[in-house]
Design a protein around this nucleic acid. Structure first.
Length: 280
DNA sequence: CACGATGTTCAAAA
DNA sequence: CTTTTGAACATCGT
């Protein structure tokens, strides 16, 4: 499931493979995923050069000539593939970019949840999802003061808070559970009762874990694989996600799985406990 | 056969 | 305003 580290891995792969190529023509096979009619989408992309590929949170920003950006979100199972011209389409190939070097860039997505928005560069941050996106989980952008302010004005469970992209960009279900376990914070803990110490621990773990996952080329779980020779090895570093019933690495208590904010949530019931006002 | 779980975002409801 | 819920969709396991 592409979270920030997986999207960053794909960004790097795409940069290596298609930066500098020109799009000759496009086949848009699933119009509902686009922000305009398929014909218009195809016509507008024809002839544009792929200048550069950026990322913001889980969004890929494919920078094109003529001041256009193709904003691509993979949602759950979106994948990119680069194949020789004429290769047979896969079952769930929904966009084919014919390049000027006898190759094709393919977008595949079994669940059909992914989205592509072709907009002028200046309109990228007007798109819903990007217009309210929070800071990147880095040392420079995710400051203690910002995180504390956001946590204290929120009245939600910490897990729901972490999944909200307007608070922090790029954290999904896997890294939410992992960073909470690392920080010994219960997923249902009320955000406004976290101590300064807990906030700083959480902040450091988020930044550290995301960087580590990028180094490991992301997490390969279920059927998710990326097609750029970078398989993803971070699943070997997971502590709670997908480990229901297995002993906690710190205390041996079996990992439990519950529903928080409608999402499957794995945690250690001994290491991660809810508390109220810390001044008690 | 039916049903729930899967991860992410957005629109709509509360 | 904030927060929660359901929908979008396909596939797999029970």
């Amino acid at each position: 499931m592409p979270e920030l580290p997986e999207v960053e891995t794909i960004r790097r792969g795409l940069t290596n493979l298609v930066q500098g190529t020109t799009i000759v023509s496009v086949d848009a096979l699933y119009p509902k995923m686009l922000n305009m009619p398929a014909k218009e989408f195809e016509n507008m992309l024809a002839g544009k050069e792929i200048l550069q590929i950026d990322r913001r949170g889980k969004y890929l920003l494919i920078r094109l000539s003529d001041d256009y950006t193709l904003v691509s979100h993979l949602r759950m199972e979106g994948k990119y593939d680069v194949v020789p011209e004429g290769t047979e389409n896969q079952k769930h190939t929904y966009v084919v970019f014919h390049l000027n070097d006898e190759r094709e860039l393919r977008y595949n997505d079994t669940r059909k949840f992914g989205k592509m928005n072709l907009v002028k560069d200046s309109q990228v941050y007007d798109l819903s999802g990007l217009n309210k996106i929070g800071p990147e989980p880095t040392e420079e952008d995710l400051t203690f003061d910002y995180l504390k302010k956001q946590l204290h004005k929120s009245h939600r469970k910490i897990k729901a808070f972490l999944l909200d992209q307007s608070n922090i960009a790029g954290i999904g279900n896997i890294y939410a559970d992992e960073t909470l376990w690392l920080s010994k914070i219960h997923p249902e803990q009320a955000t406004n009762y976290l101590s300064d110490q807990e906030i700083e621990t959480l902040r450091e773990n988020i930044i550290k874990e995301i960087q580590l996952a990028i180094k490991g080329h992301g997490t390969t779980v279920f059927t998710y694989k990326n097609a750029f020779g970078e398989e993803g090895s971070f699943q070997n570093h997971l502590h709670v996600y997908g480990k229901k019933g297995q002993p906690c690495e710190r205390c041996g208590t079996p990992i439990e799985k519950i529903k928080v904010a409608q999402r499957g949530t794995s945690f250690c019931p001994y290491c991660q406990r809810v508390h109220g006002d810390l001044s008690e």
